[in-house]
């Protein structure tokens, strides 16, 4: 069965390119445009019984930012899910704040597809 990965980013460009890369690598991708949207999608997945393998989330987003979102995920049944934060260069402090919030790893934008997959391989079992 294909593994589900949720991509949370307010930029459609980032979502599209990340999703493109993940689908190419054989993953099923769920997209959410901010933390709020992502939480709602998590509820839908939970209802449908779809297992999720990983969340990729941006930090700086409208409505609900990434750090708040991670904190909320940690209070749900998805709390042991690996979460990869997407940050931009020059945001060293963000990585630390992400780790405190409960992120499992990070990825600096912009990244190459192989960098994305390399980071994912550290967090989930791949075929």
């Amino acid at each position: 069965m294909q593994k589900h990965i949720m991509v949370v980013d307010d930029s459609p460009t980032i979502r599209s390119s990340v999703a493109f890369c993940l689908r190419n690598a054989g993953y099923e991708v769920d997209e959410a445009k901010d933390g709020q949207d992502a939480l709602e999608r998590l509820d839908v997945l939970k209802e449908a019984g779809t297992p999720l393998a990983l969340i990729l989330t941006d930090i700086n987003m409208p409505r609900m930012d990434g750090l708040t979102f991670i904190g909320k995920v940690k209070a749900t049944a998805f709390r042991y899910l690996p979460i990869l934060v997407l940050t931009t260069e020059g945001e060293q402090g963000m990585i630390d704040r992400g780790k405190v919030a409960g992120a499992s790893g990070w990825l600096i934008k912009p990244f190459h597809p192989e960098q994305l997959l390399w980071a994912i391989r550290k967090l989930i079992y791949t075929k």
Partner: peptide, 10 residues
């Protein structure tokens, strides 16, 4: 670049 670079850059 090396795959590690993007993640390790900061």
């Amino acid at each position: 670049p090396s795959p590690a670079q993007a993640a390790a850059a900061p």
